[in-house]
Amino acid sequence: MSLLLAAIIGMLFASALYMMMRRSFVKLTIGLILIGHSANLLIFTCAATRRDGSMERLPPGLIEEGQTRIEGEFADPLPFALILTAIVIAFAITAFTLVLVKRAYQEVGTDDLDNMRTTDR
């Protein structure tokens, strides 16, 4: 799984950056969404990977009723906490960018970023 995950993270980064380098504002937005997923998966690898580099389905960081700690292996909760907030922030950024695209298209009449450069008079 770790090898596959590494490959998929690389692939997601590649397509995200390719989209972000396009001159079309909508495509840039899609690139932003993709790079959010890539980054989240990157952080995720820290949570689920063992120290020897192997990866397994570990139980979540939940303490059983009546216990005071988790016995045995469990998935590192800190990366998941970071991912959780990152997801919500990425959502807000995506929504904001979509609105910006729509508004800019409405005002400027183009979605070509190269043509928008001259609009900040």
Binding site: V88, F91, A92, A95, F96, L98, V99
Partner: peptide, 13 residues
């Protein structure tokens, strides 16, 4: 906060 932010975005749009 989350509820307010998300709904602001969706309703505005």
């Amino acid at each position: 906060t989350v509820l307010g932010v998300v709904l602001t975005m969706i309703f505005t749009l």
